[in-house]
Design a binder for these strands. Structure first.
Length: 574
RNA sequence: CGGGGCGUAGCGUAGUGGCUAGCGCGCCUGCUUUGGGAGCAGGAGACCGGGAGUUCGAAUCUCCCCGCCCCGACCA
């Protein structure tokens, strides 16, 4: 039984100055966590109970799925990570350290290498697979920017599992088993979530899906179709290309457009000087970028920005992609900032990419490659030739769903899980092979699957709170029932104690506010802040033989006769 | 890593060159109070993030460093 009189807990009336998002504010105010350093948090008793409840649900669902738990150290020698090149690739996100002999060590950011080596050591036959093993482990990543309390920390707990199969069909099956287990897990955590394809289907790529829990403060943006349920990362959205007929468009005409380096200023001049009726969507934006040191040109409609993430995802193999800077314009004087058009791309040696919205036969106003001049009646296919169509423009709410053409919404979310068909990358790098039925060496194929366990605490808090405080689902809450005793004399306290013991004897987890020196208001505020799903008030009602039972989430209150209250509460727990 | 903001008691804050650094919450003691963060009285708690400098005098101005938060890049 948790007793407020002795519990190691201090609730805060004021919002801590360093907290911005709801989960962070409330978890600190309610005394669940405290910050140690940027992205590094301690758990206080209530927080650690909640954390373990979530961990146990995750573990339980993994075990039910037939996966086996193992445990690796967080402190690892660099050797395996050097073999897979991640010692270099991970860069400064890796916490590195040396032992007294000067040997290189790291704090594990993820454990693919270690799992692969473990299986290599224990398995040598196709009969040893399929195999799924997992661990619940503290991970370390020296994030450039930890944020949002425990949502993105430098130390965090992740459940990571790995599947090992002899062939692709086996991998697909292991992947599906994980998908099902994740659905059971997140349902049990009472989280609302969408399963989102993480990699563009058009690109081929291995299957990968993210479990995203929608919330305003989430750091992932994704696209959701409320009509057909389609959900995808913005990187994975495919824009259909319109099929426009060849039209009889007047020949390209150069216009004087003084002082119009921006789309906005251009539209204004067009409407004042050239007939009106123009919007930003009629203009063609010609964005110049440096892709691994080479200048490229990307076309998007003037009312859209280039989305560098989407563009990068569409240009595999390009490592360093950035917008043109002043220096780049300075070295290429033929490119006139603010007045670039695609008409001369070929002559200037620029590879010309276009968003599918810039369809063949579409007609535009665009730069004339001369200061203070633009061109109109510029036709794609007649006046310029696109080298390649790629996803480049930002995705916006109201764009049409690639599946059913309904306008989509854009939502923010926290990534709570990720399932990924890894393939043979690690197995090959670390030479993980078994003998098949014909006695030949076969490289195993792997999947990797993660759930952010500590992050899930924050995700549930984000989705389940109100202006008064947290509202935990019962299985996660630090207790089933929060009993508050109020009054001066001993009667309500004795009664509360009696009810608490009766409930505990039937397996209920009880928080009892037995403080004699705190006023009723303080106790109610604390109970609401802490967020145990059922609050029982033993006090004033005793005079007419009743005890008040409140539902934290709905705020519903009912007066239950004293003799029936234990039975009533027991029924709530079933 | 780029941009912005901030650092004063456990928490939230006031104090832009001049008396003993002020207030609220919390904490301690006593009395009163007990169904919505009680009242009164008394009290403890701060080398003002660190260092160097300017000055008769620095929380306050200058420089350097450290730390924290937000936006972006990165990561997943």
């Amino acid at each position: 039984m948790l007793r407020m009189s002795t519990l190691f807990l201090r609730t805060l009336r004021e919002v801590p100055a360093d907290a911005e998002v709801a989960s962070h504010k409330l978890l600190v105010r309610a005394g669940y966590v405290r910050r140690i350093a940027a992205g590094i948090y301690s758990w206080l008793p209530l927080g650690y109970i909640v954390y373990r409840n979530i961990e146990n649900i995750v573990r339980d669902e993994m075990n039910k799925a037939g996966f086996q738990e193992v445990h690796f150290p967080a402190l690892l020698p660099s050797e395996a990570y050097e073999k897979t090149n991640r010692w270099q690739e991970y860069g400064s996100d890796l916490f590195r350290l040396k032992d007294r002999k000067g040997g290189d060590y790291l704090l594990g950011p993820t454990h693919e290498e270690m799992f692969t080596l473990m299986v290599k050591g224990e398995c040598s036959s196709y009969k040893d697979v399929p195999l799924v093993i997992y661990q619940i482990q503290t991970k370390y990543r020296d994030e450039a920017r930890p944020r949002s309390g425990i949502i993105r920390g430098r130390e965090f707990v992740m459940k990571d599992s790995y599947s090992f199969d002899i062939d692709d069909a086996g991998l697909a099956h292991s992947y599906q088993r994980h998908r099902d287990a994740y659905i059971s897990t997140f349902d049990r955590l009472n989280l609302k979530y969408s399963i989102v394809s993480a990699v563009s289907g058009a690109m081929g790529g291995s299957a990968s899906e993210e479990f995203l829990a929608p919330c305003d403060t989430g750091e992932d943006t994704y696209v959701l179709c409320e009509s057909c349920g389609f959900a995808a990362n913005v990187e994975a959205i495919v824009t259909p290309m319109a099929e426009l007929p060849t039209a009889n468009v007047p020949p390209l005409e150069i216009l004087d457009t003084p002082n119009t380096p921006t789309i906005e200023s251009l539209v204004e001049v067009l409407n004042n000087e050239y007939g009106g009726g123009f919007t930003a969507a009629d203009t063609l934006k010609n964005i110049l970028l440096m892709a691994d040191g080479e200048a490229i040109s990307v076309l998007v409609p003037g009312d859209r920005e280039v989305d560098l993430k989407r563009l990068g995802a569409s240009l595999p193999g390009i490592e360093d992609l950035r917008l043109f800077e002043e220096g780049d314009f300075a070295t290429r004087k033929e490119l006139v900032k603010g007045y670039v058009g695609p008409q001369d791309a070929a002559r200037l040696g620029l590879r010309l990419y276009a968003d599918p919205r810039v369809a063949p036969n579409s007609v535009w106003v665009t730069g004339a490659n001369e200061r203070n001049r633009h061109a109109r009646y510029v036709v794609n296919g007649r006046d310029f030739q696109v080298d390649q169509y790629i996803e480049a423009a930002e995705v916006r709410a109201g764009d049409t769903c690639p599946k059913c053409a309904t306008p989509v919404i854009i939502d923010r979310a926290i990534e709570i899980g990720h399932i990924f068909q890894l393939g043979r990358k690690y197995a090959e790098a670390l030479d993980l092979t078994v003998l098949d039925a014909e006695g030949k060496q076969r490289v195993l194929t792997m999947g990797s699957y993660g759930i952010g366990v500590s992050r899930a605490v924050a995700a549930v808090a984000e989705q389940s709170h109100d202006e008064m405080g947290l509202c935990w689902p019962r299985e996660i809450a630090p207790a089933d029932i929060h009993i508050v005793a109020t009054g001066k004399d001993d009667v309500p306290f004795a009664k509360a104690e009696e009810i608490a013991e009766a409930l505990e004897s039937i397996g209920a987890r009880i928080m009892l506010d037995d403080r004699r020196d705190a006023s009723p208001g303080v106790k109610f505020k604390d109970a609401e802040l802490i967020g145990i799903p059922t609050i029982v008030v033993v006090g004033k009602g005793l005079a007419d033989g009743t005890i008040e039972v409140r539902d934290r989430k709905s705020g519903e209150r009912s007066d239950i006769p004293v003799d029936e209250v234990v039975g009533y509460l027991a029924a709530l727990l079933d």
